[in-house]
């Protein structure tokens, strides 16, 4: 974990300190003078030796003390804390729902594999994936929220249960958006298992299709499913950029985008380091989960 983090920090450092432009003019605005840019560079510590600046990044990766945003002057860890909750209130229910619905649909179409329902679903999945996510958002916002008045058009109120009216439509769209790729993926995995020898044996023993599907096939398909599901979790924290932006969810997606647009290096650095840490942690969790679903897998 440590070498990966050090490497990540090094890449971040090279990208922002050596490749990216000088942020001082952007921060000072249209009236910046050369003198003031130099002064700001000093205040931000950008005139210090490269190694000292690299060490700062490494330190922040371990202490989570990312300092303050250059652009908004806010404490970055506070920005992340404040932004994480709205992102999670959308992404967690959406993720759970979309996973359950997708697996359920995949099991059903696998049950009717080769039949009309299966073919219709495969066609529907490809069709759904072909449509831009923006089209779903624009359509749902205009017709379900504005024309029919079923949902809030946009906005967010922090705290339970106040946020519920605001997340319903984003969650619904998230589920629909994921249905296509997820069902195709899970269906492939399940079908792969269905043609295994142990399934044939189970059938020969007289087990019902339902029992085979839910007890044996699903269990054996769990390793790729877990890999696919768990590795998505770190990205849930970062939020869904487009959905957050259109529905006015004040989550982390917007913070990152804002930081990129304003060359707010400390915030971009913090978000990159956090993603790297989360990715590493959840990769480890995935490995641990393998041992639970398949005793043949052992951690060494």
């Amino acid at each position: 974990m440590v070498p990966i983090l050090l490497g990540t920090c090094f890449i971040i450092f090279v990208l922002f300190n050596m490749v990216a432009g000088d942020p001082t003019q952007l921060l000072l605005g249209k009236h910046a003078t050369a003198k003031q840019m130099l002064e700001l560079k000093r205040e931000l510590g950008l005139d210090r030796p490269f190694f000292a600046q690299y060490l700062d990044i490494v330190k922040s990766a371990f202490t989570f003390d990312f300092g303050r945003s250059w652009s908004t002057k806010q404490e970055i860890i506070e920005m992340i804390k404040i932004g994480a909750m709205p992102s999670l209130t959308v992404s967690i229910p959406a993720f759970i729902l979309s996973t359950i619905v997708s697996i359920a649909v995949s099991l059903i179409v696998s049950f009717f594999r080769g039949g009309k329902l299966d073919r219709i679903m495969v066609f529907a999945c490809v069709a759904m994936m072909s449509i831009s996510s923006l089209a779903y958002i624009l359509f749902a916002q205009k017709f379900l929220a504005y024309e029919l008045g079923l949902f809030e058009i946009s906005g967010y109120e922090p705290g339970f249960p106040y946020f519920i009216p605001y997340i319903l439509l984003p969650v619904l769209i998230w589920v629909v958006l994921n249905l296509g790729p997820d069902v195709r993926f899970y269906r492939t995995i399940i079908l792969d298992e269905i043609y295994q020898d142990y399934v044939r044996t189970a059938r020969a023993k007289g087990l019902s299709e339902k029992m085979i599907l839910f007890k044996h096939v699903l269990k054996n398909a769990m390793i790729p499913i877990i890999t696919y599901v768990v590795i998505q979790i770190p990205f849930l924290i970062l939020g869904a950029l487009l959905i957050e932006s259109f529905f006015g969810i004040p989550g982390l997606g917007g913070i990152t985008l804002n930081a990129i647009n304003s060359s707010d290096f400390p915030v971009i650095r913090a978000m990159t380091v956090l993603s790297a840490v989360a990715y590493i942690i959840f990769s480890v969790i995935t490995d641990v989960l393998y041992t639970l679903v398949d005793p043949r897998v052992r951690l060494k």
Binding site: L138, Q141, Y146, F246, G248
Partner: peptide, 18 residues
């Protein structure tokens, strides 16, 4: 003061009287 980044929600909210 509502922070609404995208044009469509801002436009729809205005038309709804929000």
């Amino acid at each position: 003061v509502n922070v609404i980044i995208e044009n469509q929600p801002r436009w729809l909210n205005f038309q709804k009287g929000n």
